[in-house]
Design a binder for these strands. Structure first.
Lengths: 123, 123
DNA sequence: CTCCGTGCAAAGCGTTTGCATGCCG
DNA sequence: CGGCATGCAAACGCTTTGCACGGAG
């Protein structure tokens, strides 16, 4: 795998941010250090880094995807109003009986996301 | 709120299906009973029913949204390969301490989704 | 020198929206 | 009848892709 300046900066900047940026937010950030980068390159590298397991991607219904450079075990709280995502300590699910899977279904993972309102969006 | 034939059928068909259809899958289903319906109407009514709390909408990473006419308490398993969603008994989370929210953040709900492979996608 | 990765722009896809018409109440 | 809901199609926002060029190895 070839190491390009763009690739390096994209991963660095994502790991630096704890704001779970969307692709275009990260693009803006990367542009400060590498003005000629393109959005397409950001998307292509995010996909690649995802496949390599170096970053993770957060589910968002209907909206744009958000990326997380922190792959240590933790959960998220999402503001239902502005969509911003904050980190939260991993919920202690050990000891909780997992539900029975439907016949033939093999469960390999789960995603836990909390919903609420961030300080800026409450009034 | 006005009761139109379209609105009636959309809700009925969604409640009838346990496959968590996407908007266009539901559209196809509704068309069998009401051929002249439009996709826009399906979307508009899904939004409305959602606001009324009569149905729910499932988070799907990057892909299309899926809708659920069953609003009783239950969780979901999503096949990471084909994207299909199956119902699963609600995970017993009572007694598990919820994580501390970030300062000023008010958590009102959570979503728990299991990931795995459905029988059709395993070989 | 090779050929992978990039920039650019256009295409793709799910969803939303503007407008004139239709139909519920 | 009045006005909300619909059908239709265009617009939209995010993401992906095709193509020719450029730079890493």
């Amino acid at each position: 795998m070839r190491i390009t300046k763009q690739r390096e900066i994209i991963l660095e900047e994502l790991k630096k941010l704890s704001s779970h940026p969307s692709a275009d937010e990260l693009y803006e950030q990367v542009r400060r250090r590498f003005p000629h980068v393109s959005l397409g390159t950001v998307y292509r590298n995010l996909d690649l880094l995802l496949k390599l397991g170096l970053i993770s991607k957060l589910s968002v219904a209907g909206g744009q995807a958000r990326y997380d450079g922190n792959i240590s075990r933790h959960d998220h709280v999402r503001c239902v109003s502005c969509g911003r995502v904050h980190d939260i300590a991993a919920a202690p699910v050990e000891g909780v009986a997992l539900p029975e899977a439907p016949p033939g279904f093999v469960i390999s993972d789960y995603r836990l996301e909390f919903l609420g309102r961030c300080p800026d969006c409450r009034e």
